[in-house]
Amino acid sequence: MSYQLNFSGLLPYLPQFAAGIWATIELTLISTFLGLLLGTIGAAGRNSRYRVARTLWGCYVEIIRNTPFIVQLFFIFFGLPALGLKLSAWQAGMIAMVVNLGAYSTEIIRAGIDATPKGQWEAGKTLGLSRRQIFIRIVLPPAFQRVYPALVSQCIIVMLGSAVVSQISLEELTFAANFAQSRTFLSFESYLLTAVLYLVLALLMRQSFAFAAKRLFKNPSL
């Protein structure tokens, strides 16, 4: 074992890495926001008084949770054009990530909602609030707070999973690593650097979520 590390060989590819990081961050920010939104709507749908809505959302969740992410991605990017729906790599990657996070966060948020004591609904009802008002104002905020750690982990999983979208030539961080590696054959350095960068992104994400929690949850101990 006498391998000479040669990080300087990657220097010419720093612009690619920088662009890749930025693309990964952008993908993550947008898919986190839209995915959690979809998950919230999904949790409401799973909790709907209409059976059709509950069943449809249930199917969506089960399909996504029981198929590989890369197959979902390929289906959207390579499969949908057969139906006349042609998407750019960026659009396809984004949709795959949102749809994926949407399904997982639906189940997470639903678990938080299910843990709501029945008395909360009843108190809202006796005060004259509509079902929708009770859901949004009374049930959802504590439910969200209860499952927040699980949601944070899921968002980080989706960020890390975004590496897969390099497979459809979306030029994010892993794409940059593959690119540098194929030109320099510095495999060890390329992927070590990339791993460290993902680690930093993940830690930053955790920090940001912890910071957001302070603003979001005024009563830290429900």
Binding site: G119, Q120, E122, A123, T126, G128, P142, N219
Partner: peptide
């Protein structure tokens, strides 16, 4: 429900408010 108020055994206050 505007005419009838109700108070419960276990309060049922909204914990985040």
């Amino acid at each position: 429900s505007r005419s009838v108020g109700m108070v419960f055994q276990n309060f049922n206050l909204f914990p985040h408010m």
